[in-house]
Design a protein around this nucleic acid. Sequence first.
DNA 1: ACCACATGAGACATCTTTGTCTCAGCACGG
DNA 2: CCGTGCTGAGACAAAGATGTCTCATGTGGT
Lengths: 192, 192
Amino acid sequence: MSHVVYGCLMAVDRDHVLRSAAALLTRKSTATMDEVAKAAGISRATLHRHFAGRDALVLALEALCIAECETALDAARLDDGPAHDAVRRLVREIEPAAGLLAFLYTESQLFEGDAQNKGWTRIDDRVATLFRRGQAAGEFRIDLTPAWLTEALYGLLASGAWAVSEGRVAGKDFTHMIAELLLGGAVRREES
Amino acid sequence: MSHVVYGCLMAVDRDHVLRSAAALLTRKSTATMDEVAKAAGISRATLHRHFAGRDALVLALEALCIAECETALDAARLDDGPAHDAVRRLVREIEPAAGLLAFLYTESQLFEGDAQNKGWTRIDDRVATLFRRGQAAGEFRIDLTPAWLTEALYGLLASGAWAVSEGRVAGKDFTHMIAELLLGGAVRREES
DNA sequence: ACCACATGAGACATCTTTGTCTCAGCACGG
DNA sequence: CCGTGCTGAGACAAAGATGTCTCATGTGGT
């Protein structure tokens, strides 16, 4: 049954192509289908066989990113323990997806009727719920809305991903920089 | 001497076109030259008479943004008083340019040899110097590098501008949300 | 009234990207 | 050894954006 093997190979290739595209578009968001194909080591024709067009590719990248974010959200166990530790876990888990997230975050400024809107909303809600929980527990200040904290997290992830990719900050500091700034801010505090 | 009047009119129009373009590109970063022209209430031909092409337009927008940022930096008096108050003043003063800054911040991910690089570097340096001053004064924590704090400021300004333009956060909270998150973080603290 | 000059409208060629198609090569299983 | 079917290379047209050009129009100063 060749189509089983075929299906398997397709899946592997599709995933590889998707990850190559993510890596490239993270660095150059305006990359051509041709450049994406070359980056994946395949021809443009084959790229088109996997993804009907650029829209389909971006859509698939959205689906991938949403899946990775959900995985990170699960792995971070947002409901366990103090909210600030959950935030640290979340940043750590979501780091591998930060570049792709940054690409889609800016790209999606244009999407009117986003087909993946439901997926993004789910993620937004889970993150916002974490911040709300922290506020309810008295851990987080209440003058910053959960919506803004969520938005700020995305912004910091994007900034961090770009800053790392351009060598302005060290990659190993990514998690610490983002989580600690988001949690504690720039001001030095006496209490640990 | 018609060319004096002419020169004056040119300057006025050019500025108006530039600001219309900034407002449009803030919302839709892929807007066409035609859309930019319509947004400014002029024809594409006239737009081309003012700006040789899209590159020239973006370059002029960079120059405008740099100028506005420098003005904001001056107005914020970064060397006066506590660094954290200087940061608050800076965020307040730079708010009007935040949208344009967000556009150029993402757009410039592509610019290799940025003609305005010197201008951006100057701004980066002034902001980083502020954070360094705060660290030296013991106000700011030293585990977050000035470069990262600068980058984070840009990221938060961009997030804030988008969140406001899409109605996810209230425009009147812009300054407070950004400055207080950047300074104090999400964690509630006892000390004022 | 005349003239200079900026403007708007539109035609036009060009360039880039995209999407589709064909064809030959090649690997893989039967 | 022989097909099946995926792949790469390339040709092709279509679409969108850009840059340039011309011409008619209107406005403002002389």
